[in-house]
Amino acid sequence: MSVVIDILLLGLMGITAIAAIRMKNLFAAVMLTGIYSLLSALWFLILDAADVSFTEAAVGAGFSTVLMLSTLTLTRSAEKPSRHSPILPLFVVVVTGAILVYATLDMPGFADPEAPIHTHVAPHYIEKSEAEIGVPNIVTSVLASYRGFDTLGETTVIFTAGVGVLLLLGIGRRREDGDE
């Protein structure tokens, strides 16, 4: 049953993505991206990734849609048709896609319990995290303790991006106003 939902949701995501890309009105395209993110959040939930699901719903579907809409109010919402022929990009994309499909033929099948990803550190996290960390949610134990330095790096990236946005939109503009 969950395989049927998996196939349906991924199909819907493909359709939404194509619609978002074809849309000339950027407001409609951004709203379709929001729907696309919500569908992916639903799909994460079907595949047992509850933490990923609510992060995607809040941050991917909520926050980034708001950011894009506010960018559109500051710029413009209609897209001009491109002057270049789409043949070269299409050729590049089809060739890259074909190579990637060829590469997946060596991948372990979907939901294969013997896949290499399940045989290294993951069993340790599942068996030992309650004794070593004491938090019932294994994702939290790994995120905040076993891989805490990763999370520190993540917050550094977010801090840098925040400073970058402030410098681009806030402080720089105020100084220009002062010069005039």
Binding site: V52, G60, I117, V121, Y125, V142, D150
Partner: peptide
Amino acid sequence: NPLPHVLILTAIVVGVA
């Protein structure tokens, strides 16, 4: 497997940044 969930949690937030 919890490990890909952790990696993608980090990736989503960095992606929005």
